[in-house]
Write a protein that binds this DNA or RNA. Structure first.
Length: 419
RNA sequence: GUGAGUGUAGCUCAGAUGGCAGAGCACUGGGUUGUGGCCCCAGUGGUCGUGGGUUCAAGUCCCAUCACUCACCCCA
């Protein structure tokens, strides 16, 4: 019986890892420019943390979490997202006692028990960014600017930025009832799901994909019309800043979020290339979450990037030329192989990337191997060379060959490789 | 959780009507007894997803099951 990775969990193979590390390094570089610092948080938390933070009634908490009891009976969950953990850490270590504003990021695997499909796995990876401590629209726009900057530097241009405001809890009450009133007239025309949602969470009817529902919602009251003075002002300033920064965006009053904690600004970055799961990043402001966690009331905003989704876009694009070893040693015969084996280790000690083939094959096979590895040079050593005390050094791109004395070969290679 | 599609070599895929399991790429070797890529020749590699059933005979037909893919749902 052959073992296979469990459903929705995927191996990232050596050929793919380059794309991942380039992506992550570019993210770190850009975030550094904006003054963000990395934080690393655990993959397990108490289940309670997510239930409280994300919302008991959300799909994530009610049916998508991997939960279990440990040997002591503690109810734990594998994290379905990162924000709750970051706030927990923030409060636990009293980071608010230091600087008033913290700009943090983290990256790593998240877990949600969902049916896998394109752009959706049970283990998936997110890059998560948070600004904790600043209420202002400047932070909102800078955060959004930064994420678009990252995508653009990765060569991703065909993206759409959607923004919306969910207002504050006091705005949402009246809006909800107004929306319900509106929907009542259409109850029989809504899809079964939306009839359900009308009662549980009418805002969700906004992102239904059934044609008739979409049509009905075209004329529905929108959250934006129900914003209080402050929230409206906040949203307007956000738009002003985005415009000043030269950013294209669309105001999408239908943009809802599946997590309960969002307030005011929400946004999503979408791509036309990915099918149904078209959001490659999404986030928003969560000004009340800190207090919900019994921390000091502190405004915050953040977003998460779905790494798999971005990687899929990146993989369709051209790869940088592959790097190969500085040197491949082609040794012929046991004596030469043994000498080469020792040279290899000496050269690596000097910081040279070098390889050889331990399979004792012919020169042609070894040359092919060197070529496949994209080796820059090959050192050929056989019985003749050992007898003469000099090997043949071949440059693989120019095909030039010359003799090099074997007693100083390690230093010679080091000299060439470190240029 | 619901629906549809697909499972044959490491990869991409052919195998109407049941009758000896194939190709291209990759890999190994040879052409060039010690020189890579291109070309030519040859070779290695398969419990045909799994388990039952029908049949003289099943990759092919039937049933079940598992996995993958896409979509719904939901979200990054």
């Amino acid at each position: 019986m052959q073992y296979k990775a469990v459903r929705g969990f995927k191996d990232i193979l050596p050929d793919q890892v380059g794309t991942w590390t380039r992506f992550e390094q570019e993210a770190k570089r850009i975030f550094g420019l904006f003054g963000y610092r990395e934080i690393r948080i655990p993959i397990l938390e108490s289940m309670e943390l997510f239930a409280r933070g994300i919302g008991e009634d959300t799909d994530i908490v009610s049916k998508e979490m991997y939960t279990f009891r440990d040997r002591r009976g503690n109810h734990l969950a594998m994290r379905p997202e990162a924000t709750a953990s970051i706030l927990r850490a923030f409060i636990e270590h009293k980071l608010y006692k230091g600087s008033p504003v913290h700009k943090l990021y983290t990256m790593g695997p998240m877990f949600r028990y969902e049916r896998p499909q394109k752009g959706r796995r049970r283990q998936f990876h997110q890059i998560d960014v948070e600004i904790i401590g600043d209420p202002g629209p400047r932070s909102d726009s800078e955060l959004i600017y930064m994420i678009m900057q990252l995508f653009s530097s990765l060569g991703l241009d065909d993206l759409e930025l959607h923004i919306n405001s969910l207002g504050c809890p006091t705005d949402r009450g009246p809006f909800r009832s107004k929306l319900k009133d509106y929907l009542k007239d259409y109850t029989s025309q809504l899809c079964p799901d939306c009839q359900e949602r009308m009662e549980t969470n009418p805002l969700r009817v906004f992102d239904c994909k059934v044609d008739r529902c979409i049509e009905i919602m075209k004329d529905a009251p929108t959250m934006l019309d129900f914003l209080c003075e402050d929230c409206a002002q906040h949203f307007k300033q956000l738009e002003d800043y985005l415009t000043q920064l030269g950013m294209d965006y669309v105001v999408n009053s239908h943009l809802m979020r599946g997590l309960d904690y969002y307030t005011r600004t929400t946004f999503e970055v979408q791509t036309p290339e990915l099918g149904a799961q078209n959001a490659i990043a999404g986030g928003g402001r969560y000004d009340n979450l800190m207090a919900d966690f019994d921390g000091p009331a502190t405004p915050a905003i953040g977003f998460a990037i779905g790494q798999e989704r971005v990687i899929e876009l990146l993989e369709g694009r051209e790869e940088a030329g592959e790097q190969g070893p500085d040197l491949f040693v082609a040794a012929l015969g046991t004596d030469a192989e043994d000498r080469a084996f020792v040279w290899l280790q000496e050269m690596r000690k000097k910081g040279i990337w070098c390889e050889m083939d331990y399979r004792s094959s012919g020169l042609k096979a070894q040359m092919r191997h060197a070529d496949r590895l994209h080796a820059k040079r090959v050192l050929i050593v056989g019985d003749d060379e050992l007898a003469k005390g000099s090997g043949i050094l071949r440059d693989m791109s120019t095909k030039e060959q010359r003799e090099v004395p074997l007693d100083t070969v390690v230093d010679e290679i080091a000299r060439l490789s470190h240029r």
